[in-house]
Amino acid sequence: MLDMFFDAAKAQEPVPGSDLMARILADASQVQSGFQTVPDAKPVPTPARTTQSILTRIFAVLGGWAGASALTASICIGVLYGATAPDTVRSYLPSLNEQTAELDFSYLGLLDETVADLEG
């Protein structure tokens, strides 16, 4: 007995109306546009970011904060030494002001003799 009722019900299968299909496809379009905007939302590198990246890399090559601090301290000490060291060095080595250097070029005469022997 049930079969004829089932058959009758299957014959009355509802057909989705155009309004329903339009709503469903609008939903699909909306959801799908969300998929497509995801890649566009990724940040695009700018020139400022590139410059910052190079500075960051140099900073890293120097060894980070520790390296940069050490370099800065070395520069400061170098400048300080440059401004004050000559007097300090002279005060410790006063003889530098009194002595003169004597240069001996006699070995050049031996060189001339050797060349003459080879040619002669």
């Binding site: 299968e13 057909v15 299909m21 469903i24 496809l25 699909a28 799908q32």
Partner: peptide, 16 residues
């Protein structure tokens, strides 16, 4: 992957 026609086929195939 962004194919708009795919939604239409799926919808017409299964909504009923």
């Amino acid at each position: 992957n962004g194919d708009g026609q795919a939604a239409s086929v799926l919808a017409y195939r299964h909504t009923g």
